[in-house]
Design a protein around this nucleic acid. Sequence first.
DNA 1: ATTTGGTCAAACCATTTGGATAAACCATTT
DNA 2: AAATGGTTTATCCAAATGGTTTGACCAAAT
Lengths: 167, 167
Amino acid sequence: MLRGMGNREDLLAGAKRCLIERGWAHTTVRDIASAAGVSHAAIGYHFGSKDALLTQALVEAVDELSQELASRTPSGKPEDGWQALIDSFTSHRALWVAQLEAVVQAERSPEVREHLAKGQREGREGLGGSVPLALLTGLMLQWLVDPDQAPSGAEVIAGLRALAAEL
Amino acid sequence: MLRGMGNREDLLAGAKRCLIERGWAHTTVRDIASAAGVSHAAIGYHFGSKDALLTQALVEAVDELSQELASRTPSGKPEDGWQALIDSFTSHRALWVAQLEAVVQAERSPEVREHLAKGQREGREGLGGSVPLALLTGLMLQWLVDPDQAPSGAEVIAGLRALAAEL
DNA sequence: ATTTGGTCAAACCATTTGGATAAACCATTT
DNA sequence: AAATGGTTTATCCAAATGGTTTGACCAAAT
């Protein structure tokens, strides 16, 4: 009697979509069910609760991002590498926002925090240390708040040189 | 008949407390009113809606943080300066989380975004550029998710040197 | 063919939520 | 003292929300 599971995946996908375009706070069970084309009762059946489903969806979104980040390991001219990373913000904005929401959520959910920590370790590995990762995520935050004033790849390099010169 | 205003400030303070210790998502009008020792109807009277009050409270919290950040401008040995900044995360954890929540919220509220952008400009000014600010906030994110693996001030300097050497 | 175990949706329910209303309160003015 | 206008509260309300129940449905096993 194996195989049924149809809705489970739909629900996860729908939950991820809601998470991305409405945020955790404004996502209701009915939103998710509607996005998945499913009765909202299915949520209770498959995941027990709305929070459990959203948590898992969030975890998957985080994984997607660290996977994407790993594939962007800077290569070639450092200037171009940073610029590529900065450019990638644009095409994954919603995912980055979800990541932030995950950090907030992690304050109250050890499970979410654990996955975030894992993704962070991978990110550090892929980028070559804590400092490059911090630089990347910090720039992302600035860009998220005010895209116009976010520095270009060349400016990042320049700022980095200036900072290193002070040591 | 001037002077009444008693509750307005209490409500703002209560809202800020709730925001910090429960987060926007889990804060209800009754929570705020209770924290302020006031009837929840006063919220509607003074601010029109719960969201309006929370938005303003969030804005104030963001201001507090950029003020705190400005007062921490690194001085003396750079290593100690960074360490001091990193240490300050501990005593203002809730405020930093609120700041993140503000960024998420900014996706849907131009008002919040505007204040965040202002705070960011001040932060850049106080720290001397986009790169140091990015480094700081990025480190904060890492520390928030996994305090144990967050680098020390010395490690930051070392990572910075290594990164600069690759240019 | 019937039973069985798992999957799903429609209807239902108790609670919570944000907001509205109307009356009470109080300092000031007349 | 009476009236005034801003402030605050107690009470009420409709809507929304998360969750549960009930019964239908279906494939596989008997």
